[in-house]
Design a protein around this nucleic acid. Sequence first.
DNA 1: GCAGATACTTGATCTTGTCAAATATGTAGG
DNA 2: CCTACATATTTGACAAGATCAAGTATCTGC
Lengths: 148, 148
Amino acid sequence: MATATEPVTTSAAREAQKLFFEIGMDHRAKVGARLVELSLTFVQAHALRLLDPERPLPMSSLAELLFCDASNVTGIADRLESRGLVERRSAEGDRRVKVLTLTPAGVELRSRVLEIMGEPPEAIASLSPADQRALRDILRRAVAHLRD
Amino acid sequence: MATATEPVTTSAAREAQKLFFEIGMDHRAKVGARLVELSLTFVQAHALRLLDPERPLPMSSLAELLFCDASNVTGIADRLESRGLVERRSAEGDRRVKVLTLTPAGVELRSRVLEIMGEPPEAIASLSPADQRALRDILRRAVAHLRD
DNA sequence: GCAGATACTTGATCTTGTCAAATATGTAGG
DNA sequence: CCTACATATTTGACAAGATCAAGTATCTGC
């Protein structure tokens, strides 16, 4: 890690983390409730979100993005495929690799998922516009550190 | 909801949400990995966290805090109880109610869970102290709105 | 062409989650 | 007191998500 400043766990960071977690859990529950209407689980919705129609993903890449075992992705893909949302296509050049591609129905449903999951949690939505921008800027910096 | 300003979903809020989600997912995976060392699942750890040794909770209250069905809590409590981390005690005054109480082993393990889950995600930890404080302050306001 | 690596699938097993039905207990009215 | 209804938890059935170990297909390098 080539961070110029050594990360220090301040009490502000710990409190921020606690609040962060609380907002996240609350939001996850609310998102889950709306996803039920699409007959999607949270994981399925997250997978759809990751499957950009422009850039289909090998199953192994999806496993990495989901932080889970490849064998788990088999089941998730099975269920999405059985609903006609994705297709498995053998990658050209390497027939071991199965590339997951959204079907038209998948693209359509994904856009609704993006709508639901992109909606900010109530806690964030109710901040003043200035706070929202400040929050965005801080989080941009936070994520930038992640990708160093 | 007695908010003076009507919540508006600005593009800043949506981008903040996206970053927020990304940090949260990353953190959850990392926390999960550390919890494996304690032989705890994320849900079990979260439940332990909610069980303040000072204020034992009826199972129904825990179900609410976990945003899940009461019957689910039965299983979670079973597994924690079988490891000697919690006890079910009938509430005085209403024998239908079972109050979950941490055992000494539960108290001990809970403190390690608090340590692990209270640790801020790398993304937050690597922010400057000023950003950490600013983030904490904004999130405080966000959560305050939630509880109006 | 063979040995070993890689991508995915399969089968076993566990935890989480939901629902409907059962049990036990509490409360209100008659 | 007894009945009817409400509430807290449990049980059983079942599906999804997760991990692990073993199997199959395909690739790559010697």
